[in-house]
């Protein structure tokens, strides 16, 4: 099982759209995929038409009681794609995680028992840099970092890389440009400029597109309802690139179990 965290300190950079679309593509390719909506805003949960409610979620995060993630997983509308829904209690996640003996390892500990059931876990992370983020960095095999090509966004990227360096966190970080408007000179300049050597920048660029915004109306991934659109194609390219970087993701052919 591989774990990919979709993360940025900043909000509104296209994290949830990325997480939902690549999780959908992974599932479609035959990988048994779980997306965990860690953001109390519950956008990923909403997109996948599941109710944002997790029984005993506080106990799970605190490490109290016998509950397991396995009991709260919900299937999506798509083959091979399951969801761990968000819960409003996640707004206090830092406090809840802090009650564990090893507070920075709690998410990984919760995910481990699922390793036989899933090939891939996609974490849709809340913005900010906190105990939750550190849990994510420690659990993930790779971080995908959607970045709007603006000066402010680049600053938050530096903050993240500094933070990781300070904590000696070796998780590979793959940034990519998101919500890109090719007509804007600033976007073009930032993309052309050399990036921070501590993280690799993927080649795929996700364009700013209304079809991504429409995900909220359709309540489906772009890669499902309009896969041949520019954004749909861009997410496919992004997934292909990310999959190759992470490695070890050999799809199960769904029908195999029958034979």
């Amino acid at each position: 099982m591989k774990i990919i965290g979709v993360y940025n300190i900043k909000g509104g950079v296209g994290k949830t759209a990325t997480a939902v679309n690549i999780a959908h593509l992974a599932a479609k390719s035959g990988l048994r995929t779980l997306i965990w909506d860690l953001d109390p805003q519950a956008a990923a949960t909403y997109y996948l038409r599941v109710k944002p409610k997790v029984k005993r979620s506080e106990k799970l995060l605190r490490g109290k009681g016998k509950g397991e993630l396995d009991d709260v997983v919900k299937g999506s509308d798509y083959a091979n794609l399951d969801l761990l829904p968000a819960d409003f209690s996640y707004r206090n996640m830092d406090l809840l995680l802090g009650e564990n003996k090893k507070p920075t390892m709690r998410l990984l500990k919760l995910l481990r028992p699922l390793s036989k059931e899933y090939d891939l876990v996609v974490l849709d992370c809340p913005p900010s840099i906190s105990l939750v983020s550190e849990n994510i960095f420690r659990a993930a095999d790779a971080l995908l970092l959607p970045t709007i090509p603006t000066t402010l966004s680049l600053r938050t990227m530096q903050q993240l890389l500094d933070f990781m360096e300070g904590r000696k966190l070796m998780t590979p970080v793959y940034a990519f440009y998101s919500m890109v408007d090719r007509r804007k000179r600033l976007h073009q300049d930032v993309i052309a400029a050399p990036g921070d050597p501590r993280c690799s920048v993927l080649e795929t660029v996700i364009p700013y597109a209304t079809e991504v915004e429409r995900m909220g109306i359709e309540r489906r991934p772009v890669t499902d309802y309009i896969p041949r659109s520019p954004a749909g194609l861009a997410y496919q390219a992004l997934w292909a690139e990310a999959k190759a970087k992470v490695g070890g993701l050999n799809p199960m052919v769904d029908l195999d179990a029958l034979f």
Binding site: P251, V253, L255, F259
Partner: peptide, 22 residues
């Protein structure tokens, strides 16, 4: 041992006869 061809590609898989994970 089986080889599955589908639109997802071609995969050769080794499984236990008794069933379970490949």
């Amino acid at each position: 041992l089986l080889q599955m061809r589908s639109p997802r590609g071609t995969v050769v898989r080794l499984k236990p006869v008794a069933g379970g994970e490949p």
